[in-house]
Design a protein around this nucleic acid. Structure first.
Lengths: 162, 162
DNA sequence: TACAATGGCTAACGGTGTTAGCTAGCCCTG
DNA sequence: CAGGGCTAGCTAACACCGTTAGCCATTGTA
Protein backbone atom coordinates (compact mmCIF):
# COMPACT_ATOMS: atom_id res chain seq x y z
CA UNK A 1 0.00 0.00 0.00
CA UNK A 2 1.47 3.28 -1.12
CA UNK A 3 -0.09 5.27 1.74
CA UNK A 4 1.55 2.96 4.28
CA UNK A 5 4.87 3.41 2.58
CA UNK A 6 4.49 7.16 2.63
CA UNK A 7 3.87 7.15 6.37
CA UNK A 8 6.90 4.94 7.02
CA UNK A 9 9.21 6.98 4.84
CA UNK A 10 7.99 10.26 6.21
CA UNK A 11 7.65 9.57 9.90
CA UNK A 12 9.39 6.28 10.58
CA UNK A 13 8.31 2.73 11.04
CA UNK A 14 6.61 3.17 14.40
CA UNK A 15 4.39 5.90 13.01
CA UNK A 16 2.63 3.29 10.91
CA UNK A 17 -0.44 2.41 12.90
CA UNK A 18 -3.61 0.79 11.74
CA UNK A 19 -5.63 3.75 13.00
CA UNK A 20 -3.17 6.23 11.55
CA UNK A 21 -3.16 4.61 8.14
CA UNK A 22 -6.92 4.26 8.15
CA UNK A 23 -7.39 7.92 8.98
CA UNK A 24 -5.17 9.06 6.09
CA UNK A 25 -7.30 6.87 3.83
CA UNK A 26 -10.50 8.30 5.26
CA UNK A 27 -11.69 5.12 6.93
CA UNK A 28 -11.71 3.30 10.23
CA UNK A 29 -8.98 0.94 11.37
CA UNK A 30 -10.97 -2.31 11.32
CA UNK A 31 -11.81 -1.77 7.66
CA UNK A 32 -8.17 -2.35 6.79
CA UNK A 33 -8.60 -5.96 7.82
CA UNK A 34 -10.83 -6.46 4.78
CA UNK A 35 -7.68 -6.01 2.68
CA UNK A 36 -4.85 -7.29 4.88
CA UNK A 37 -5.15 -10.16 7.31
CA UNK A 38 -2.76 -8.54 9.74
CA UNK A 39 -0.51 -5.53 10.15
CA UNK A 40 2.46 -7.74 9.39
CA UNK A 41 0.90 -8.69 6.04
CA UNK A 42 0.45 -5.02 5.23
CA UNK A 43 4.10 -4.38 6.04
CA UNK A 44 5.01 -7.40 3.92
CA UNK A 45 3.42 -5.72 0.90
CA UNK A 46 5.60 -2.66 1.49
CA UNK A 47 8.67 -4.84 2.05
CA UNK A 48 8.02 -6.69 -1.17
CA UNK A 49 7.97 -3.51 -3.18
CA UNK A 50 11.02 -2.08 -1.40
CA UNK A 51 12.99 -5.29 -1.92
CA UNK A 52 12.33 -5.01 -5.63
CA UNK A 53 13.53 -1.43 -5.76
CA UNK A 54 16.62 -1.93 -3.62
CA UNK A 55 17.48 -5.08 -5.56
CA UNK A 56 17.19 -3.25 -8.87
CA UNK A 57 19.70 -0.65 -7.79
CA UNK A 58 22.16 -3.32 -6.71
CA UNK A 59 21.80 -5.26 -9.93
CA UNK A 60 22.34 -2.09 -11.90
CA UNK A 61 25.48 -1.31 -9.90
CA UNK A 62 27.17 -4.62 -10.65
CA UNK A 63 25.98 -4.65 -14.24
CA UNK A 64 27.71 -1.34 -14.92
CA UNK A 65 30.49 -1.10 -12.36
CA UNK A 66 32.41 1.66 -14.12
CA UNK A 67 36.07 2.05 -13.26
CA UNK A 68 35.57 1.28 -9.56
CA UNK A 69 35.23 -2.46 -9.85
CA UNK A 70 32.15 -4.46 -9.00
CA UNK A 71 32.65 -4.55 -5.22
CA UNK A 72 33.12 -0.81 -4.81
CA UNK A 73 30.30 -0.02 -7.18
CA UNK A 74 27.98 -2.39 -5.32
CA UNK A 75 28.88 -0.94 -1.93
CA UNK A 76 28.36 2.61 -3.13
CA UNK A 77 24.94 1.72 -4.51
CA UNK A 78 24.02 -0.15 -1.36
CA UNK A 79 24.87 2.73 0.91
CA UNK A 80 23.22 5.32 -1.31
CA UNK A 81 19.98 3.36 -1.60
CA UNK A 82 19.78 2.74 2.14
CA UNK A 83 20.52 6.32 3.16
CA UNK A 84 18.01 7.62 0.62
CA UNK A 85 15.24 5.58 2.29
CA UNK A 86 16.39 4.89 5.85
CA UNK A 87 13.05 3.90 7.37
CA UNK A 88 12.28 1.64 4.45
CA UNK A 89 15.71 0.07 4.71
CA UNK A 90 15.10 -0.69 8.37
CA UNK A 91 11.71 -2.19 7.63
CA UNK A 92 13.23 -4.50 5.04
CA UNK A 93 16.35 -5.57 6.92
CA UNK A 94 15.77 -5.62 10.67
CA UNK A 95 13.93 -8.41 12.38
CA UNK A 96 12.58 -11.55 10.80
CA UNK A 97 11.33 -11.52 7.21
CA UNK A 98 7.66 -12.41 6.61
CA UNK A 99 8.77 -14.81 3.88
CA UNK A 100 5.38 -16.48 3.38
CA UNK A 101 3.91 -13.11 2.36
CA UNK A 102 6.70 -12.22 -0.07
CA UNK A 103 7.09 -12.85 -3.78
CA UNK A 104 8.89 -16.20 -4.07
CA UNK A 105 12.48 -15.83 -5.14
CA UNK A 106 12.57 -12.08 -4.61
CA UNK A 107 14.77 -12.27 -1.53
CA UNK A 108 17.37 -14.41 -3.27
CA UNK A 109 17.27 -12.25 -6.37
CA UNK A 110 17.93 -9.09 -4.36
CA UNK A 111 21.02 -10.70 -2.84
CA UNK A 112 22.48 -11.97 -6.10
CA UNK A 113 24.61 -8.89 -6.80
CA UNK A 114 26.84 -9.81 -3.87
CA UNK A 115 27.56 -13.12 -5.53
CA UNK A 116 28.17 -11.49 -8.88
CA UNK A 117 30.56 -8.98 -7.37
CA UNK A 118 32.65 -11.47 -5.42
CA UNK A 119 32.24 -14.68 -7.37
CA UNK A 120 32.34 -16.58 -4.10
CA UNK A 121 29.30 -17.45 -1.96
CA UNK A 122 31.05 -17.08 1.38
CA UNK A 123 32.78 -13.87 0.52
CA UNK A 124 29.44 -12.64 -0.82
CA UNK A 125 27.73 -13.22 2.52
CA UNK A 126 30.63 -11.63 4.37
CA UNK A 127 30.47 -8.60 2.13
CA UNK A 128 26.74 -8.31 2.63
CA UNK A 129 27.23 -8.48 6.40
CA UNK A 130 29.78 -5.71 6.23
CA UNK A 131 27.51 -3.52 4.12
CA UNK A 132 24.46 -4.09 6.28
CA UNK A 133 26.47 -3.56 9.46
CA UNK A 134 27.81 -0.26 8.16
CA UNK A 135 24.43 1.01 7.12
CA UNK A 136 22.44 -0.03 10.14
CA UNK A 137 25.08 1.21 12.56
CA UNK A 138 25.14 4.54 10.75
CA UNK A 139 21.35 4.80 10.79
CA UNK A 140 21.28 3.96 14.48
CA UNK A 141 24.01 6.51 15.21
CA UNK A 142 26.29 3.90 16.71
CA UNK A 143 29.58 5.25 15.40
CA UNK A 144 31.59 7.71 17.50
CA UNK A 145 30.75 11.31 16.77
CA UNK A 146 32.92 12.73 14.02
CA UNK A 147 33.70 9.37 12.44
CA UNK A 148 34.89 9.54 8.87
CA UNK A 149 32.53 6.93 7.49
CA UNK A 150 33.60 7.50 3.89
CA UNK A 151 37.03 6.35 4.92
CA UNK A 152 35.61 3.39 6.86
CA UNK A 153 33.70 2.27 3.75
CA UNK A 154 36.91 2.55 1.77
CA UNK A 155 38.82 0.49 4.30
CA UNK A 156 36.18 -2.21 4.13
CA UNK A 157 36.01 -2.12 0.36
CA UNK A 158 39.77 -2.51 0.18
CA UNK A 159 39.67 -5.50 2.51
CA UNK A 160 37.06 -7.20 0.36
CA UNK A 161 38.49 -6.24 -3.01
CA UNK A 162 41.51 -8.43 -3.04
CA UNK B 1 17.85 -4.92 37.42
CA UNK B 2 18.61 -8.62 37.42
CA UNK B 3 14.97 -9.70 37.17
CA UNK B 4 14.54 -7.64 33.99
CA UNK B 5 17.62 -9.22 32.51
CA UNK B 6 16.36 -12.68 33.34
CA UNK B 7 13.08 -12.01 31.52
CA UNK B 8 14.87 -10.67 28.45
CA UNK B 9 17.35 -13.53 28.28
CA UNK B 10 14.72 -16.15 28.90
CA UNK B 11 11.81 -14.93 26.80
CA UNK B 12 13.14 -12.19 24.55
CA UNK B 13 13.10 -8.44 24.59
CA UNK B 14 9.41 -7.96 23.91
CA UNK B 15 8.53 -10.13 26.90
CA UNK B 16 9.88 -7.42 29.16
CA UNK B 17 6.82 -5.49 30.20
CA UNK B 18 6.38 -3.19 33.14
CA UNK B 19 3.47 -5.28 34.39
CA UNK B 20 5.31 -8.53 33.74
CA UNK B 21 8.43 -7.40 35.56
CA UNK B 22 6.40 -5.99 38.42
CA UNK B 23 4.52 -9.23 38.85
CA UNK B 24 7.71 -11.30 39.06
CA UNK B 25 8.86 -8.89 41.76
CA UNK B 26 5.56 -9.11 43.57
CA UNK B 27 4.54 -5.51 42.92
CA UNK B 28 2.33 -3.43 40.70
CA UNK B 29 3.63 -1.82 37.52
CA UNK B 30 3.41 1.82 38.61
CA UNK B 31 5.65 1.08 41.59
CA UNK B 32 8.54 0.48 39.22
CA UNK B 33 8.50 4.16 38.39
CA UNK B 34 9.75 4.89 41.89
CA UNK B 35 13.03 3.32 40.80
CA UNK B 36 13.25 4.00 37.06
CA UNK B 37 11.93 7.12 35.39
CA UNK B 38 10.95 5.21 32.28
CA UNK B 39 11.08 1.76 30.74
CA UNK B 40 13.96 2.94 28.60
CA UNK B 41 15.94 3.86 31.72
CA UNK B 42 15.31 0.40 33.10
CA UNK B 43 16.59 -1.12 29.88
CA UNK B 44 19.57 1.21 30.04
CA UNK B 45 20.56 -0.34 33.35
CA UNK B 46 20.51 -3.78 31.75
CA UNK B 47 22.40 -2.49 28.72
CA UNK B 48 25.05 -0.95 30.93
CA UNK B 49 25.74 -4.24 32.64
CA UNK B 50 25.68 -6.22 29.40
CA UNK B 51 28.05 -3.77 27.73
CA UNK B 52 30.51 -4.34 30.55
CA UNK B 53 30.31 -8.10 30.20
CA UNK B 54 30.51 -8.19 26.41
CA UNK B 55 33.38 -5.69 26.49
CA UNK B 56 35.28 -7.80 29.00
CA UNK B 57 35.15 -10.82 26.76
CA UNK B 58 36.42 -8.82 23.78
CA UNK B 59 39.26 -7.29 25.78
CA UNK B 60 40.24 -10.73 27.00
CA UNK B 61 40.23 -12.05 23.43
CA UNK B 62 42.67 -9.48 22.12
CA UNK B 63 44.82 -9.59 25.26
CA UNK B 64 45.43 -13.33 24.77
CA UNK B 65 44.93 -13.97 21.06
CA UNK B 66 46.68 -17.35 21.01
CA UNK B 67 47.97 -18.57 17.66
CA UNK B 68 44.98 -17.24 15.71
CA UNK B 69 46.01 -13.64 15.65
CA UNK B 70 44.14 -10.77 17.24
CA UNK B 71 41.51 -10.32 14.54
CA UNK B 72 40.41 -13.96 14.42
CA UNK B 73 40.47 -14.26 18.19
CA UNK B 74 38.36 -11.13 18.53
CA UNK B 75 35.83 -12.29 15.95
CA UNK B 76 35.51 -15.69 17.60
CA UNK B 77 34.91 -14.08 20.98
CA UNK B 78 32.42 -11.64 19.51
CA UNK B 79 30.36 -14.32 17.84
CA UNK B 80 30.45 -16.62 20.86
CA UNK B 81 29.39 -13.90 23.28
CA UNK B 82 26.53 -12.76 21.07
CA UNK B 83 25.17 -16.23 20.37
CA UNK B 84 25.39 -17.11 24.04
CA UNK B 85 23.09 -14.19 24.91
CA UNK B 86 21.14 -13.36 21.75
CA UNK B 87 18.34 -11.33 23.29
CA UNK B 88 20.80 -9.36 25.36
CA UNK B 89 22.96 -8.75 22.31
CA UNK B 90 19.97 -7.38 20.45
CA UNK B 91 19.04 -5.12 23.31
CA UNK B 92 22.54 -3.68 23.38
CA UNK B 93 23.11 -3.26 19.67
CA UNK B 94 19.89 -2.56 17.84
CA UNK B 95 18.28 0.84 17.81
CA UNK B 96 19.62 4.01 19.38
CA UNK B 97 21.70 3.82 22.54
CA UNK B 98 20.34 5.61 25.63
CA UNK B 99 23.72 7.20 26.13
CA UNK B 100 22.65 9.66 28.82
CA UNK B 101 21.70 6.74 31.07
CA UNK B 102 24.94 4.81 30.52
CA UNK B 103 28.23 4.82 32.39
CA UNK B 104 30.36 7.46 30.69
CA UNK B 105 33.15 5.98 28.60
CA UNK B 106 31.76 2.46 28.75
CA UNK B 107 30.65 2.43 25.13
CA UNK B 108 34.07 3.53 23.89
CA UNK B 109 35.83 1.07 26.15
CA UNK B 110 33.77 -1.83 24.86
CA UNK B 111 34.77 -0.94 21.30
CA UNK B 112 38.48 -0.58 21.98
CA UNK B 113 39.39 -4.21 21.17
CA UNK B 114 38.61 -3.54 17.52
CA UNK B 115 41.21 -0.80 17.50
CA UNK B 116 43.71 -2.97 19.32
CA UNK B 117 43.20 -5.82 16.87
CA UNK B 118 43.54 -3.75 13.71
CA UNK B 119 45.72 -0.85 14.77
CA UNK B 120 43.71 1.36 12.44
CA UNK B 121 40.59 3.32 13.38
CA UNK B 122 38.86 2.92 10.02
CA UNK B 123 39.62 -0.71 9.64
CA UNK B 124 38.45 -1.14 13.22
CA UNK B 125 35.05 0.32 12.43
CA UNK B 126 34.81 -1.73 9.26
CA UNK B 127 35.65 -4.89 11.17
CA UNK B 128 33.06 -4.06 13.81
CA UNK B 129 30.46 -3.53 11.11
CA UNK B 130 31.26 -6.90 9.60
CA UNK B 131 31.04 -8.65 12.98
CA UNK B 132 27.79 -6.97 13.95
CA UNK B 133 26.31 -7.61 10.53
CA UNK B 134 27.17 -11.28 10.70
CA UNK B 135 25.72 -11.70 14.17
CA UNK B 136 22.52 -9.75 13.71
CA UNK B 137 21.78 -11.33 10.36
CA UNK B 138 22.30 -14.76 11.85
CA UNK B 139 20.08 -13.97 14.83
CA UNK B 140 17.39 -12.64 12.51
CA UNK B 141 17.65 -15.70 10.29
CA UNK B 142 18.49 -13.65 7.23
CA UNK B 143 20.99 -15.99 5.64
CA UNK B 144 19.82 -18.60 3.13
CA UNK B 145 18.94 -21.91 4.71
CA UNK B 146 21.91 -24.23 4.89
CA UNK B 147 24.51 -21.47 4.80
CA UNK B 148 27.91 -22.45 6.10
CA UNK B 149 28.37 -19.51 8.42
CA UNK B 150 31.61 -20.82 9.86
CA UNK B 151 33.04 -20.53 6.41
CA UNK B 152 31.57 -17.07 5.93
CA UNK B 153 33.21 -15.90 9.15
CA UNK B 154 36.49 -17.33 7.91
CA UNK B 155 36.15 -15.53 4.60
CA UNK B 156 35.53 -12.25 6.39
CA UNK B 157 38.36 -12.81 8.83
CA UNK B 158 40.72 -13.51 5.95
CA UNK B 159 39.65 -10.32 4.19
CA UNK B 160 40.37 -8.27 7.30
CA UNK B 161 43.56 -10.08 8.27
CA UNK B 162 45.17 -10.06 4.92
C1' DT C 1 -35.74 -10.12 -8.83
C1' DA C 2 -33.32 -12.58 -5.41
C1' DC C 3 -28.86 -13.69 -3.61
C1' DA C 4 -24.16 -13.52 -2.31
C1' DA C 5 -19.99 -11.11 -1.94
C1' DT C 6 -17.58 -6.82 -0.94
C1' DG C 7 -16.22 -3.34 1.99
C1' DG C 8 -17.43 -0.14 4.98
C1' DC C 9 -19.09 0.81 10.04
C1' DT C 10 -19.42 0.76 15.62
C1' DA C 11 -18.36 -1.39 19.88
C1' DA C 12 -15.41 -3.78 22.39
C1' DC C 13 -11.37 -6.66 24.32
C1' DG C 14 -7.00 -7.27 26.27
C1' DG C 15 -2.66 -5.46 26.01
C1' DT C 16 1.00 -1.47 26.32
C1' DG C 17 3.65 2.62 28.88
C1' DT C 18 2.63 6.10 31.94
C1' DT C 19 0.46 9.68 35.33
C1' DA C 20 -2.10 11.28 39.39
C1' DG C 21 -3.12 10.92 43.85
C1' DC C 22 -3.36 8.43 48.15
C1' DT C 23 -1.15 6.06 52.15
C1' DA C 24 1.61 3.27 55.39
C1' DG C 25 5.95 2.97 57.43
C1' DC C 26 10.53 4.69 58.48
C1' DC C 27 14.12 8.01 59.98
C1' DC C 28 15.65 12.30 61.63
C1' DT C 29 15.01 16.29 64.25
C1' DG C 30 13.06 19.34 67.82
C1' DC D 1 8.71 11.17 72.85
C1' DA D 2 6.04 13.94 69.12
C1' DG D 3 6.01 15.48 64.68
C1' DG D 4 7.48 16.06 59.79
C1' DG D 5 9.15 14.64 55.65
C1' DC D 6 10.88 10.98 52.64
C1' DT D 7 10.44 6.42 50.66
C1' DA D 8 7.97 3.07 48.29
C1' DG D 9 4.13 0.81 47.82
C1' DC D 10 -0.97 0.98 46.17
C1' DT D 11 -5.49 1.80 43.02
C1' DA D 12 -7.65 4.15 39.29
C1' DA D 13 -7.26 5.94 35.14
C1' DC D 14 -5.62 7.69 30.39
C1' DA D 15 -4.43 7.31 25.65
C1' DC D 16 -2.91 4.30 22.53
C1' DC D 17 -2.05 -0.31 20.25
C1' DG D 18 -3.58 -4.59 17.17
C1' DT D 19 -7.47 -7.18 16.58
C1' DT D 20 -12.32 -9.43 16.65
C1' DA D 21 -17.37 -9.66 16.37
C1' DG D 22 -21.30 -8.37 14.39
C1' DC D 23 -24.09 -5.31 11.63
C1' DC D 24 -25.43 -3.11 7.19
C1' DA D 25 -25.45 -0.75 2.60
C1' DT D 26 -23.97 -1.26 -1.95
C1' DT D 27 -22.86 -3.87 -5.96
C1' DG D 28 -22.67 -7.35 -9.32
C1' DT D 29 -24.45 -11.61 -10.89
C1' DA D 30 -27.54 -15.74 -11.70
Amino acid sequence: MTAARRIIEGEGEEALTMRRLASTLGLQAPSLYKHFATKRALEAAVIDQALLEFGSRLHAAVAAPGRLGAVRSLLAAYRAAALAHPALYRLVTVGPLPREDLTPGLEDWAGEPFFSATGDPWLAQALFSFAHGMVILELDDRFPAGSDLDRTWKAGAAAFSR
